[in-house]
Design a protein around this nucleic acid. Sequence first.
DNA 1: CGGTTCGTTGAGGCCCATCAATCTATGTGG
DNA 2: CCACATAGATTGATGGGCCTCAACGAACCG
Lengths: 255, 255
Amino acid sequence: MDVRSDLAAVRQRPKRPSPLSNTRLADSRFVSPEERDALEGAVSSSQSIGPNIDLVREGDRADSLFIITAGWACRYMTRRNGARHLPALLLPGDVGNLDSLMFDRPGYGLRTLTQASIVTLSRDCALALAAEHPGIARMFTWLALVENAILRNWSMSLGRRSSKERLAHLLCELGARLEERGTRPCSFALPLTQEQLGDALGLTAVHVNRTMRDLRNEGLLTLESRTVTLLDVERLRRTAGFDPVYLHRAPPAQG
Amino acid sequence: MDVRSDLAAVRQRPKRPSPLSNTRLADSRFVSPEERDALEGAVSSSQSIGPNIDLVREGDRADSLFIITAGWACRYMTRRNGARHLPALLLPGDVGNLDSLMFDRPGYGLRTLTQASIVTLSRDCALALAAEHPGIARMFTWLALVENAILRNWSMSLGRRSSKERLAHLLCELGARLEERGTRPCSFALPLTQEQLGDALGLTAVHVNRTMRDLRNEGLLTLESRTVTLLDVERLRRTAGFDPVYLHRAPPAQG
DNA sequence: CGGTTCGTTGAGGCCCATCAATCTATGTGG
DNA sequence: CCACATAGATTGATGGGCCTCAACGAACCG
């Protein structure tokens, strides 16, 4: 049924390819076809951006939502002593700074990790759409609560998991979030330096390196030219204590 | 202006004292007086519960929101090896399981820490109210995003702060969240065992004890019969790297 | 070819965990 | 009133997981 609304949207605006396809905004089961069209009409056109570019600098104001339609990005926070922390990794389809829906300043920086494609939606537009369309309002709440669930599991990792479990858990999560319907989350590009992985996991780059080597030596994964291959997803999930329920994804289609 | 709507609500329902006063639901600047009345009419009557009682057991379904009108509660998660983690502390006015607004299972347990008063709001009711009243929908999104901001700062603590900074940061946050308008956040009851503090901070109870002693010895706080007194809030905030902006509280009234 | 970024490995040290014992406060039953 | 049990706070001794510092290798690029 999602496919049907997809086709309808494409038919109605043949001039601009619908930029929100496969996006967490339009994917949601809560937005009706008309609501989706309203969203499509409100977002900017797609825009390509290089890697390591700040979409929002830490501490700055942001008056628009940045929706990442291709490529990876991250949120980052910096301490006064220079230590950095990544509270979120954004994958294709994610909203980079959902907090800007309500706050002048998101409280973190937003930066691309790879070449990326972005569409923007101004806060005023988004709030107006949410006020008019209950399904859109509900979709924003849904997105915020899913982010919440992911953050909660990251905090569980940081507080109570060993470095090996933490890294394994992150890789399981990324695999599951990248998973296309019907495919196994077994191999994907991981465009993060070990330092960035460390900033997400609360570890140093050196220790990420050693931990990754341990996982390789245990036959759980291989890593070549920034592509991870999970050799035994079940065993990796067991060692990580990973249960994908918290991601609240649609179950992959059978067959 | 909030005071005015408050009075109006009281006048309109003299029989039941408005249970949502000073609650994150009704406090929000987004809900109109009528919307607030709609909320007041939808929640259950207040209910008193003892300490250490599960409102939602870990892994269970929950079909209602539990709003904590008095007392403290916590969310908890348990690993298969028995390690526990507290991803949130709930103070008077907070929604204990906001995630139940969208998910069958919140993904954590919810338990009282002290004697507490609770009102409940069924998910179906909450969703219906949100669909009908844009201000209520916006308020839920706002609440989810504030929770998000708090979680993000906890993950920053867990990932990149020392035990002393972590504990100091938590105490600063609790003080700020408890702060009544116009009072300084300098002294409050802390109804947590050191083990529970450790589960929130990613530390052991023993290390919480030593860290607390260090803070005492530095003249930053005193602690007697479960009441902390922050002796030098400014210095404590500096050592913690605490900036209350992320809590998105109304600034305390001047004078 | 030199420069830069990132990955890899080793040596040593510190922060916090672990194990264990003692102490206090509180409550309970005789 | 006291003997006893229990939960929580406190302190010491010891060990380990991860950090720090350092060096080197590999890949990429102007």
